[in-house]
Amino acid sequence: MNAKRWMMLGTLAIAIAVGHPLYKEGTLPDAAPRASADSESDDGDALLQALGLENDEQLREAIYDGFSLADIARAGGKDPAAVVELQVAEALALLEQRYASGSITEETYLAQREEIPEVVERSVYDT
């Protein structure tokens, strides 16, 4: 499998892990807290909405076919920058949780916080 395919599958794995509706507080280590049961379904659909998709299967197929998240968002009539914003916010929230729980050092926290926007942007726009 080529590097491009690994990048796409990695992005998909992040998208599913962060936005999956079964990802509930306390079910995984360092799980980000959810505000309520109502917001949980909204969080699970946030990535799909940002991409202009209706279900996870459409996302999997598009990623498998070689489209970037930016390509998928544009095809769905959405702004890829909104996808970047969403994923950055979710990644930063998870990072904050890890730091607050003591599972990472302040040095690691600061370094990762600085890197997240660039890493997410590359993952959204790269195929």
Rank of each mutant, 00 (worst) to 15 (best):
38 D>I: 14
24 K>Q: 13
24 K>M: 14
108 T>K: 12
119 V>H: 03
19 G>M: 07
24 K>G: 08
116 I>L: 08
43 D>R: 14
81 A>H: 11
98 R>T: 07
91 A>C: 13
114 E>M: 11
72 I>Q: 05
118 E>H: 06
58 Q>E: 14
42 D>C: 00
106 E>Y: 02
80 P>G: 09
19 G>L: 03
13 A>N: 08
116 I>E: 01
123 S>R: 12
42 D>E: 13
115 E>G: 08
14 I>Y: 01
54 E>R: 09
17 A>H: 05
87 Q>C: 08
57 E>A: 13
43 D>W: 06
104 I>S: 06
96 E>C: 00
58 Q>R: 07
61 E>L: 10
27 T>A: 06
110 L>V: 13
58 Q>N: 03
88 V>I: 11
42 D>H: 02
94 L>M: 10
5 R>F: 11
67 F>Q: 15
44 G>F: 03
45 D>P: 00
43 D>M: 04
39 S>M: 13
7 M>V: 14
35 A>D: 10
40 E>R: 15
34 R>N: 07
4 K>F: 01
83 V>R: 02
2 N>C: 13
28 L>D: 10
126 D>F: 10
27 T>Y: 05
69 L>T: 04
98 R>V: 06
78 K>E: 06
25 E>H: 11
79 D>N: 15
58 Q>W: 01
69 L>K: 03
10 G>L: 07
22 L>W: 00
78 K>A: 06
46 A>C: 06
118 E>R: 06
21 P>C: 07
86 L>N: 06
65 D>K: 15
63 I>D: 01
86 L>H: 04
65 D>F: 08
7 M>E: 11
34 R>F: 04
41 S>E: 11
83 V>S: 03
27 T>G: 03
83 V>D: 05
42 D>N: 04
40 E>H: 09
14 I>V: 12
100 A>L: 02
68 S>F: 02
17 A>L: 08
3 A>S: 14
66 G>Q: 10
55 N>A: 08
2 N>F: 12
125 Y>M: 00
49 Q>S: 13
69 L>R: 02
85 E>F: 02
59 L>G: 04
115 E>C: 01
108 T>F: 05
37 A>W: 11
10 G>R: 03
93 A>Q: 10
75 A>W: 00
120 V>K: 02
100 A>G: 00
12 L>E: 04
46 A>L: 05
1 M>T: 12
63 I>W: 04
76 G>I: 11
37 A>T: 11
39 S>G: 09
101 S>C: 00
96 E>W: 00
56 D>M: 10
36 S>G: 07
28 L>R: 15
74 R>S: 10
57 E>F: 05
43 D>S: 08
93 A>F: 00
79 D>F: 00
